[in-house]
Design a protein around this nucleic acid. Structure first.
Length: 503
RNA sequence: GGCCGGAUGGCAGAAUGGUUAUGCAGAGGAUUGCAAAUCCUCGUAUCUCGGUUCGAUUCCGGGUCCGGCCUCCA
């Protein structure tokens, strides 16, 4: 069961091709770093992909990179975002695009998000976009104004169905100072002309004039090119539901002369929200990046776990306290897994489990069978529980509850528990089997003390403790604590870890 | 202003017409030179006003507050 924004209902997922699912995800505009809210969209898609792989489907997944600058502010005025970034940083628009694309892909990697089958860049598809726009013109759904070619949304009968748009009300409450001559307030640019007196950094010749493509065109073109006119799932943030995707659908329908919106399922993730603070906005620059978290010593997978504790369709409030809760939780889970691994030792099936990491698109069937093969029949209930939870619109919170039960289970043999953990991690993607709990606390960017100094102080303290000079020992401990280092005396010696500040 | 969605313990967050998950924080115990970490045990919650109902946190309506879209955005 997956929730379809197109119609707003849960329904049983049935792919067009019984073995192969085609998914398109709206990607970022690469004029700045992705913030942690942006990244929620891709953890959501990754959960979707892992669920499909778990179900035995082969998946072709496309994520686009929008490297054409769209406008910073008003529908008609304002600067091109890419050009603005290029001017500010004194680099070419192409350097800007490459830099932020790379940063984005790196973030996905750190969050253990599987790479898409295809990355598609808008600028690689300009000629196809022109051809698509020409077809739209042939269909008679466009008109040309002074500043661009516009799509006439009144020509599409079901325009706005996805967004439940109230076109009448929209007109009444209209605040947008759009260009003169638009036939309907919801009409949008298919192609935008460059100003006559100024050459833009990114512009292309077209039959209508020189300019840049409208924002919605690229997704229509690239999804059609790689996945066909009809494919299974199109994902994006909830903010795309009312405008971007409605416009994309209108283009698809006009282009293909059909009522079909292009994708059968339209899925949207809700926002990450910050309490008591303005909405994080890439164009305003007030945002937290994954690197911000890493600089504080927080491992990216902690953030991934934090996202998985909520349904992708709920607003999720970001607080440092909650994030710290996920850190503590992940740490404890990893400690238990480590204990299980020590008890079980090396095993072939463990090596098979780690193969999921190198897989890009294929089903998990083989891995799943290898892990289930050695599972006690009495424990298959846990596998069913996992399957049920994710089949219920990717309900990861419930998956985490069951995982907690497995890890807390008093009587389950270690090998059995570990097999279940491996199965659960196929879907959760938390790298539970390969992450050392000690790796979770990263060196904060603010730390000034070196590892050598830490080890020297610990050695001193060990001497003091041997001499039962506890006053000196405690002084050294305080000194380390001040430097951000927590120490733990165990039976095998003293260990240390970075203290991760909550707020 | 219009349209859409939400409000659950200290924090985050599930579920549900009758018994309200889970994680973190907190409390008690074990352990420890003392701590930390770890292990065991435990308490606490459904925004507000009406309605439907034997019974509502859940369904319906009003209010308040919050979020999204209407303009580039995950």
């Amino acid at each position: 069961m997956l929730f379809n924004s197109y119609g707003r209902e849960l329904s049983e997922f049935v792919p067009i091709d019984p073995e192969h699912v085609r998914v398109y995800s709206c990607g970022p505009t690469v004029y700045n770093y992705a913030h942690i809210g942006n990244l929620r969209a891709y953890v959501f898609v990754d959960t979707l992909r892992r669920t499909l792989a778990w179900k035995g489907y082969d998946v072709t997944h496309v994520i686009n990179i929008t490297d054409v600058g769209h406008l910073t502010s008003d529908a008609d005025e304002g600067d091109d975002k890419m050009e603005k970034a290029a001017e500010q940083q004194k680099r070419t628009v192409w350097d800007i695009a490459a830099h932020y694309t790379e940063a984005f892909q790196r973030d996905l990697g750190r969050l253990n998000i599987m790479s898409p089958s295809i990355w598609s860049k808008a600028t690689d598809h300009i000629q196809e976009m022109i051809a698509f726009a020409q077809k739209l013109e042939d269909q008679g759904v466009t008109y040309t104004l002074e500043d661009g070619v516009y799509f006439d949304t009144s020509k599409v009968a079901s325009y706005g169905k996805l967004g439940l748009l109230d076109l009448e009300g929209q007109e009444a409450g209209k605040r947008v100072s759009g260009p003169d001559g638009k036939r309907n307030p919801s009409d949008f640019a298919v192609w935008r002309f460059s100003p006559t007196d100024k050459q833009r950094l990114m512009e292309w010749h077209t039959p209508w004039g020189i300019g840049a493509p409208g924002w919605h065109l690229e997704c229509s073109v690239m999804s059609t090119k790689y996945l066909g006119k009809m494919f299974d799932i199109h994902t994006g943030g909830i903010d795309h539901r009312q405008v971007h995707h409605c416009n994309e659908i209108a283009q698809n329908q006009a282009h293909a002369c059909t009522d079909h919106p292009g994708a059968n399922w339209w899925m949207h993730n809700e926002f990450l929200v910050l309490r008591d603070s303005e909405k994080m906005s890439k164009s305003k620059g007030n945002f937290l990046t994954l690197q911000t978290l890493v600089d504080r010593g927080i491992h990216p997978l902690v953030y991934r776990l934090f996202l998985l504790t909520a349904s992708y369709r709920s607003n999720l409030e970001f607080t440092w306290e909650a994030l710290d809760g996920s850190r503590a939780n992940l740490r404890r889970m990893l400690l238990r897994v480590q204990r299980l691994r020590d008890e079980v030792g090396p095993a072939d099936w463990l090596r098979i489990a780690s193969e999921a990491k190198y897989q890009s698109g294929g089903p998990f069937t083989y891995i799943r069978n290898a892990l289930c093969a050695g599972l006690d029949r009495a424990l298959t209930g846990y596998v069913n529980a996992l399957d049920q939870a994710i089949s219920n619109d990717l309900h990861t919170p419930q998956v985490l509850v069951k995982l907690g039960e497995i890890l807390d289970h008093k009587k389950m043999p270690a090998e059995q528990a570990l097999r279940l953990v491996a199965l659960y991690d196929l879907v959760l993607g938390l790298n539970l089997l390969v992450t050392d709990p000690a790796d979770l606390a990263l060196r904060p960017a603010s730390a000034t003390i070196s590892d050598e100094e830490i080890n020297a102080l610990i050695a001193q303290r060990t001497e003091a403790r041997k001499a039962k000079d506890f006053a000196a020992s405690d002084r050294l401990r305080d000194q380390l604590a001040e430097a951000g280092v927590a120490i733990k005396d165990g039976p095998t010696g003293t260990e240390w870890e970075w203290v991760v500040a909550g707020a």
